[in-house]
Each structure stands twice: as C-alpha cells, then as structure tokens.
C-alpha cells in the first residue's frame, strides 16, 4: 500500500462523530456523573434543548438556513433530514454506517448522517446534496458526475458526490489509487466506480 493512502496528521479527516463520543454526550444528557470537560460539552449540548425527554425543539443550520423542528433526541441526523425536513436527497442505504449513502458535510467534513443524532449537530453548518449547487449552477462535482456517467440508479449518488467533494478537499484524490481508497466508504451496487473515479479525479485535477 502506498504511503499517500495514509492520512497526514494535520490534514482534514473524515469525521463521523464516533459512537464513543455519542455515548458520552448521551450520558451527559441523562445527567450521569462525568469528567468536567465532558460535563461542559454536555451542558453546551443540552443548552440547545429545552427538555431532555420526548420531542424537543431543535435548530439545525442546513444549507445555510436555520431550520427549527420538534424531534426526539434519538432522531438521527439522517432521519431528521429525510423525515422531518423533507430533504430526501440524502439517502438511507443501511442506517448503520456501512454504505455511505447518507454522507453529508458537517462544518465542511464528510460524515455518515445515520451515525449521529440531530441534536448533536446543532450550531454546526450542515450541507446536504440539495445545498451543493449555487442556484441553477451545479457544483463542478455534480457536473463531472453527469459528464462521466458516475451513477446508474442514482441512489448512492448524493453520498458519492458529498464524499467526492470532501475527498478532493482533504487532498485524498491525488492519484487514482488514493482516490479509490478514500472513496471506498461509499458503496455503489450499480458498479459505477470507474466513472465515479473519473469524475473525482477530474475535479481534483482542475484544482
């Protein structure tokens, strides 16, 4: 395996708000004893929620807009987008962090939105596939996917595109081998991989 497949320590990394940090935060919400830095974090989170049980008001910044919704704390970011905000461009392929169909950007990093709770993403900048184009002007990655036929059924496509944009930004699309590796968290059962690679590499090379 090539060395460029491994992350530089200070390069932006894919960040999927690991289950471990979620557990800590959930514990905070339930009021269990926690080490001081985590209490601070939990307080920061609970400050956004008026109650800790049942549906509560949550404000998310999605595609540059503040959206307020009433949801339970257990609602994932993915379900909040799809079921409560009718932003169905983000897809559910597995609900378990195994397929990448639900990839969105949070503060510019790609995450699997099925692996995080909506309440945890308050105060952050969430970008979904619906927010990538500038009005009628498609993002270069969207253009490249159309040009290279980077999809067939289109179901993995929003996730692939969000991942592709981040992959280029992370500097992980420098070679074909590197881009293949760093795009491998996004499954495509239609097998559009070679075309996805062509699209990601073209955008990477355009700079």
């Amino acid at each position: 395996m090539q060395s460029d497949l491994f992350p530089d320590s200070d390069a932006p990394q894919p960040d999927d708000s690991s289950r471990r940090s979620f557990m800590k935060q959930a514990g905070g919400i339930l009021g269990l004893a926690l080490a001081p830095p985590l209490v601070a974090q939990a307080e920061r989170l609970t400050a956004y929620s008026k109650t800790i049980e049942g549906a509560t008001e949550v404000t998310l910044r999605v595609n540059g807009q503040a959206r307020t919704l009433r949801i339970e704390p257990r609602v994932t970011l993915l379900d909040a987008l799809r079921e409560y905000l009718d932003l169905t461009g983000t897809k559910k392929g597995c609900d378990h962090g195994q397929c990448g169909a639900c990839t969105v950007h949070v503060d510019g990093r790609r995450i699997n939105s099925c692996l995080t709770l909506a309440v945890m993403q308050q105060g952050k900048e969430i970008t979904t596939i619906e927010g990538l184009a500038q009005g009628e002007q498609l993002h270069p990655m969207q253009e490249a996917f159309i040009k290279h036929d980077g999809f067939q059924c289109g179901y993995c496509t929003p996730g692939q595109i969000m991942s592709g944009v981040a992959c280029v930004k992370e500097g992980h699309a420098g070679t074909d081998a590197q881009a293949r590796e760093w795009m491998s968290g996004n499954l495509c059962r239609c097998g559009a991989y070679a075309n996805i690679l062509a699209a990601v590499r073209e955008v990477a090379q355009r700079g």
């Binding site: 461009g89 619906e130 990538l132 159309i146 036929d149 999809f151 289109g154």
Partner: peptide, 22 residues
C-alpha cells in the same frame, strides 16, 4: 448522450419510493 435524469439525480431532486412525505 448524458442521462436526461442526471440533473435530478445529482441534485437530490429525484424522488424514490420512500420519499413521498407530502
């Protein structure tokens, strides 16, 4: 020809069967 449904698919506008929330 590039796919005529390409734009709908790359912008998230293509509606699949679990997405009729109206």
């Amino acid at each position: 020809l590039s796919r005529v449904d390409g734009r709908a698919k790359v912008t998230g506008q293509a509606k699949y069967s679990a997405e009729y929330n109206h």
